[in-house]
Amino acid sequence: MKKFMLCLSAVCLIAFTSCKDDATKKIDDTNVAEAAERDANASKFPVIQFDKQEHDFGTIEAKTNVETVFNYTNVGEAPLVITDIKSSCGCTVPKDWSTEPLAVGQTGHFTVKFNGSGTNKVSKTITVTANTEKGTETVKITAFVMPDPNAQPAAGASPVQAQ
């Protein structure tokens, strides 16, 4: 058993020390330069700047469709790519955004349509998924939704009589 271990150790020693080429001679300077540039660019992100963080529709009647446009600018150091825009509820629909890269300094926009559902003060969040450092950015819409004057009272509710 001792001879086997001795032979195995000798084979491993020969295998690990038999490299005659110096590993530093195999480094290609162009690869090093490309890697340095890639690493420098990896720390550069696009930054999305909105013209407004929140839009208030004011007072609207229930079931009234309203929409607004959010404008944005890429103020970062790399092209901006928006991959998705979602709202916090199905009553709010974001649309009309570009999935093409937006160069530094360029502007874009998307539309948000709200169908007037809910009652009283309503607030919805729109999440923009992009290649920014955080990965997601948010904007909001708000409205005060008045009850529909043509709506029938709920079952079991007694009508209010004027005195």
Rank of each mutant, 00 (worst) to 15 (best):
I60M: 12
N131D: 13
F45R: 10
C91D: 11
E100L: 05
D51I: 04
Q152W: 11
T111A: 08
V139R: 10
V66E: 09
G116Y: 03
V139F: 10
T59V: 13
P153S: 12
I85C: 13
N65G: 14
A130Q: 11
T136F: 04
N150F: 05
Q53G: 05
V104E: 07
K63D: 15
H55W: 07
T127H: 05
F110R: 07
E137H: 11
I60R: 05
E37T: 14
P147W: 05
V75K: 14
E137S: 11
N120D: 15
N65H: 15
F45V: 11
A157S: 14
V32E: 14
V11M: 11
F114G: 00
A143H: 01
V32R: 12
A15S: 15
V69G: 02
K113S: 14
C91T: 08
A40N: 04
G118A: 08
G108Q: 08
S98Q: 13
V47L: 07
A35H: 14
P159L: 06
M5Y: 15
S117V: 03
N41M: 02
K86E: 07
N71H: 04
Q163V: 02
D29Q: 00
A36K: 03
K134M: 12
E67Q: 14
G105M: 04
L8K: 01
V104K: 09
K63N: 15
A155G: 13
T68W: 09
G116A: 07
V32N: 00
